[in-house]
């Protein structure tokens, strides 16, 4: 008799649980997929396409769909770490197949060589190049993400990617990198300075 009771009790329990779950599934459904938004926030928005996707947002979508998180050279290890943190995945080293981490750069047009073809303007993902047909173009340095997508299309090869110069206001206290200036001075004997421990 006890086992009949057991069967009945368990089935009733299961039935009720099933009903509740059926109700909850419809009542508390969550819409949307905000994770893509969060991933996109972490990506550097260089829009360089080195990850193999046309822009940061498509890559964010791809990561949310399960792609690797180590395909973003401009973001570098810091971005990988933060993505790993967000997604609870393992932080891997940057995938060398997609390029290496580099210093921040900015595109500069050698203006005397520019022929005004507008090819770079069309290539710039963030509209950071201004100019018109047959007019000289120039890069708005503050808006340039350093993606270097404009370099290749230029028919006259007049765009250089130059490292961002360090300014005192944005100096990061790297004492090892203080330039030793060889200032010609009769009183001073020039010698290579020995760097103290930073």
């Amino acid at each position: 008799m006890s086992w009949v009771l057991g069967i009945i009790a368990l089935s009733v329990l299961a039935l009720v649980a099933g009903l509740i779950l059926g109700f909850a599934a419809i009542r508390f459904r969550v819409e949307g997929d905000p994770i893509v938004e969060q991933i996109d926030q972490i990506l550097p928005q260089t829009q360089c396409g080195q990850c193999g996707y046309p822009g940061c947002r498509p890559y964010a979508q791809a990561i949310a769909d399960g792609d690797e998180i180590n395909k973003c050279p401009p973001g570098g290890q810091a971005t990988i770490d933060r993505l790993a943190d967000l997604l609870g995945r393992e932080a891997k080293p940057l995938d060398a197949a997609h390029g290496a981490e580099d210093v921040k750069k900015v595109a500069v047009i050698r203006e005397d060589e520019c022929i005004g073809c507008t090819k770079c303007i069309q290539a710039c993902p963030v509209d950071a190049i201004i100019g018109a047909t047959r007019q000289m173009h120039t890069v708005i340095a503050d808006e340039c993400t350093g993606c270097d997508l404009c370099v290749e299309p230029c028919p006259v090869d007049c765009i250089d990617m130059l490292p961002l110069p360090t300014k005192p206001e944005r100096w990061t206290w790297n004492l090892e990198q203080i330039p030793v200036q060889n200032i010609t001075d009769a009183a001073a004997t020039t010698e290579t300075s020995e760097r103290g421990p930073a």
Binding site: A14, L15, G18, L19, L21, G22
Partner: peptide, 9 residues
């Protein structure tokens, strides 16, 4: 709800 209940049961 009915379906879930029956399956679980």
């Amino acid at each position: 709800m009915q379906k879930n209940g029956v399956i679980l049961g």
